[in-house]
Design a protein around this nucleic acid. Structure first.
Length: 631
DNA sequence: GTCAATGTCATTTTT
DNA sequence: TGACATTGAC
C-alpha cells in the first residue's frame, strides 16, 4: 500500500478503488480515465496483501486488452502473475480439462464463424429448405442469441412456426457439432456454464482456483457471460468489474447493459466507484464528446472533465463528394506530417468497412497506411486451409475440416465422391474421414486413398513443427501455389511462411501441444503491434480501447453515422451515438470530423445531410477553422 | 470436375 | 460499385 502511495500518482478516486476491501465492487470508468492502470494496481495491491497471484483472474473481451493488461501486470509480477485472458480463452482452457463430462473429447476443435456458415449451409441444403427464407447469416445470429440468452428451445409453445423451423435447423446444427467433436464460440461459454451448473464439485474447484475476479468492459457482457461470472464469484464474492455505459457498442451482438443493474442487485453490498477525470483528450475534444453523448438516456450521471489544455478547436469540414472527402483526409495527413506528427499517430475512422476503399485510393502511393482488423490473419484462406489440415490430424471426427481440404489441392474428389462418402459415413456411424476405409472396399478412388494415407501418416508426427512442414509439402499445397506463380499465390506463400514462424514460436513454449496451438489460432488475432510508421485506418468499432494524437472521422452524415438502419429505432440510435462518442474520445490532441453532400453507396449516388449528432456544430461553425483552399 | 459467366446483396462483429 | 455465390457450359 505504501509502495503504491509513494511511487505512483493516482487521483483520489483511483486510489480509493485500488485500496478498496476485497469485496464486490463496480468501477464506472469514463473514456481515458486510466482504468487499466487502476485494475493493474489493484491486483498489485491484493498481491501485496498476501493474495496468491495465480488466484487472480482478469477477464477481458479482446486479445488486445488482454495483452495490454498482461503488459501492465508484468511490470510488478515477475515470477508469478495473475491469470489474464479473454472469456473464450478461459473457457477453452476449462473445457480442455473437462470436455469428457459433457460429451466431447479433450481434443475438440473450435469452429469459427466461417465454419459455422459452412455447416449451416450444408444443413439447409440437406433439409431442403430455401435459403431465401432462412438466410444462413441470420440463422447464425439467431442461434447465437438462443445460446447467449439461454433461451429454452424446448418451450415449444412460445414460438411461431417460422421459429419452430429455425429450431429444427438449430437442433441439427447442435447435433452436427457434437458429432464433429467441435464447438463454436458461443458453445465455449455455454458449455462451461453447463459444466458448472451440473457439477458443483467442478465449479467449486474453479471457485477455489480463481478466488479473485476482475472483469474489463463489463458493459459488453451478455447474459450467459454474466451467468458464468456469477457462478464463479458466488463463493468468495471477490469480484471487481469495470465498465462505461456510454461505451457500450455491441448491443447488436448481445451485450446487455442491464447486467450493470443485475450486478448491483446481485451484489447489494458492492461499492461503486466513478472515474471521471480524463487524462487523454484536450478540453475542446472532451467538450464535443459530452455535447454528443448528453442526448442519450443515462442511468448514472457522470461528467467527464480534464485538467488538460483547451487545445485546438475540433474541425468540421463539409465536402461536395466522398472523393473530395477522401482527398481532404490525405491533405490533413500530409499537413500534420509536415508539422512533425508521425503517421502512426494519426487514425482515420469510418462507420462501415466499405468506406475505406475510397480513402485507400487517395492515400495509396502518397502516405503509408494500414487497415486495422481488416482480415484476421487466421481467417485467410490459405491459413485456414493449413490449420484445417492440422485440425483434422488432431481430430478425425471434424467433418467441416475434412470437407474444406479434402480436395485442396485438387485430388479429383468432387461432389459425387463426397456424396458417396456421406452415405457410407451415415450408414456406419463414422466420420467422413473414417468412412474412406469403407468406401474403398466398394470403389477405388485414388485421390481419396492418397489423402487418407497422408492424414494417417501425419497423425504419427508428434512435433508441431514437423507436422506443419509435413503438411504443407506432402499435401502438395505449397507446390500448388508455386505452380500458379501469380502475385496472389506469392502472397499466400508468404502468409504460410508467417504461419510457420507462429508454429515455431509455439513449439518453444512450455505447452507446445497441437491443441494449444489450434486454440490460439481460433481465438487469437495475430495482429502484432505495428512497428512501422503507418496511418491507421479502421471502423469506429475497431477503435474502441485505442487512442491517437490525431483522429479523423469521415462520413459524419445522417444515414452513415447514424447508420440508415438505425434511424427509426430509438435504441439503435442511442447505440450509434455511443459509437460516435467512442470515436471522438479516442482523440488526444486534434480531431477532424468530415461530412459529404454526396457519396457513392452500394453503387448509387446518394445525397446526405450532416449527421444529426453534429449538425449544430457544423451549422454554428462553433469549432470550425475556415480552410477552403483545397479542391 | 473445373472454370467462367451471370445473379444478388449489400452494418457494425471483441471471440 | 464490387465481392461472393450459384449456375451453366465445357
Amino acid at each position: 500500500m505504501t509502495d503504491i502511495l509513494q511511487t505512483h500518482s493516482l487521483n483520489d478516486n483511483q486510489l480509493k478503488a485500488v485500496l478498496n476491501d476485497d469485496k464486490p465492487m463496480i468501477i464506472f470508468a469514463g473514456a481515458g480515465s486510466g482504468k487499466t492502470r487502476v485494475l493493474a494496481y489493484r491486483m498489485k495491491h491484493l498481491i501485496e496483501l498476501g493474495v496468491e497471484p495465480r488466484s487472480i483472474l482478469a477477464i477481458t473481451f479482446t486479445n488486445k486488452s488482454a495483452k495490454e493488461m498482461k503488459r501492465r501486470v508484468s511490470e510488478f509480477a515477475q515470477n508469478e502473475s495473475p491469470v489474464v485472458g479473454t472469456f473464450h480463452a478461459l473457457c477453452a482452457r476449462i473445457l480442455r480439462e473437462n470436455a469428457d463430462i459433457i460429451g466431447y473429447s479433450s481434443h475438440f476443435v473450435i469452429f469459427d464463424s466461417g465454419d459455422q456458415k459452412v455447416m449451416i449451409k450444408r444443413i439447409i441444403k440437406e433439409m431442403d429448405i430455401s435459403t431465401s427464407m432462412y438466410n444462413p447469416s441470420k440463422l447464425i445470429s439467431t442461434f447465437s442469441k438462443y445460446v447467449r440468452e439461454m433461451i429454452n428451445i424446448d418451450d415449444i409453445d412460445q414460438f411461431t412456426l417460422r421459429q419452430k423451423n429455425m429450431i429444427k435447423i438449430f437442433r441439427k446444427y447442435k447435433a452436427d457439432k457434437l458429432q464433429s467433436d467441435g464447438m463454436d464460440f458461443d458453445d465455449l461459454i455455454s458449455n462451461v456454464v453447463l459444466l458448472f451448473t451440473n457439477n458443483p464439485d467442478i465449479l467449486q474447484k474453479y471457485q477455489e482456483r480463481y478466488r479473485h475476479l476482475f472483469v474489463d468492459e463489463f458493459q459488453d457482457t451478455n447474459a450467459i457471460q454474466y451467468k458464468l461470472l456469477s457462478l464463479l464469484s458466488k463463493k468468495y464474492r471477490s469480484i471487481c468489474v469495470v465498465g462505461d455505459d456510454d461505451q457500450s457498442i455491441y448491443r447488436f451482438r448481445g451485450a446487455d447493459i442491464r447486467n450493470i443493474d443485475r450486478f448491483l442487485i446481485d451484489f447489494k453490498d458492492a461499492t461503486v466507484f466513478k472515474l471521471d477525470q480524463n487524462y487523454r483528450s484536450t478540453k475542446s475534444i472532451l467538450m464535443l464528446a459530452s455535447d454528443v453523448i448528453k442526448k442519450n438516456f443515462h442511468k448514472t450521471k457522470k461528467q467527464l472533465w480534464t485538467d488538460n489544455v483547451k487545445g485546438d478547436p475540433v474541425k468540421f469540414l463539409r465536402t461536395a463528394t466522398d472523393r473530395d472527402e477522401a482527398y481532404k483526409v490525405l491533405s490533413i495527413i500530409k499537413k500534420e506530417h509536415n508539422n512533425g506528427v508521425k503517421f502512426s499517430d494519426i487514425a482515420v475512422f469510418y462507420r462501415t468497412n466499405s468506406q475505406s476503399r475510397i480513402i485507400e485510393m487517395q492515400l495509396a502511393g502518397e502516405v503509408p497506411y494500414m487497415i486495422v482488423k481488416g482480415h484476421r490473419f487466421y481467417d485467410r484462406k490459405e491459413i485456414k486451409d493449413i490449420v484445417s489440415y492440422m485440425q483434422l490430424v488432431q481430430n478425425g471426427e471434424s467433418n467441416v475440416c475434412f470437407e474444406r481440404i479434402v480436395n485442396v489441392p485438387s485430388r479429383k474428389i468432387g461432389k459425387k465422391t463426397i456424396e458417396l462418402l456421406k452415405i457410407a459415413a451415415d450408414k456406419n456411424g463414422l466420420s467422413l474421414f473414417d468412412a474412406i476405409g469403407v468406401l474403398m472396399q466398394q470403389k477405388k478412388v485414388s485421390g481419396l486413398l492418397s489423402f487418407y494415407k497422408l492424414i494417417k501418416e501425419a497423425k504419427g508426427i508428434d512435433n508441431v513443427v514437423n507436422l506443419f512442414n509435413f503438411i504443407i509439402t506432402k499435401s502438395g499445397y505449397v507446390d500448388m501455389l508455386k505452380n500458379k506463380g501469380d502475385t496472389v499465390s506469392e502472397n499466400r506463400l508468404a502468409n504460410i511462411e508467417e504461419l510457420r514462424n507462429a508454429v515455431i514460436e509455439h513449439s518453444k513454449k512450455e505447452d507446445s501441444s497441437l491443441e494449444v496451438f489450434l486454440d490460439g489460432a481460433a481465438l487469437t488475432d495475430d495482429s502484432d503491434d505495428a512497428t512501422d510508421d503507418n496511418v491507421n485506418l479502421m471502423t469506429l468499432h475497431a477503435s474502441k480501447g485505442l487512442e491517437f494524437p490525431i483522429v479523423i472521422i469521415v462520413g459524419a452524415d445522417d444515414g452513415i453515422i447514424p447508420h440508415s438502419n438505425a434511424l427509426i429505432d430509438q435504441d439503435q440510435m442511442q447505440e450509434e451515438r455511443r459509437l460516435f462518442y467512442v470515436g471522438i474520445t479516442r482523440a488526444e490532441k486534434r480531431l477532424y470530423i468530415l461530412s459529404s453532400e454526396i457519396r457513392m453507396m452500394a453503387g448509387m449516388m446518394h445525397g446526405y445531410k450532416v449527421s444529426r449528432f453534429v449538425a449544430k456544430q457544423f451549422k454554428e461553425n462553433k469549432y470550425f477553422l475556415g480552410d477552403h483552399k483545397w479542391k
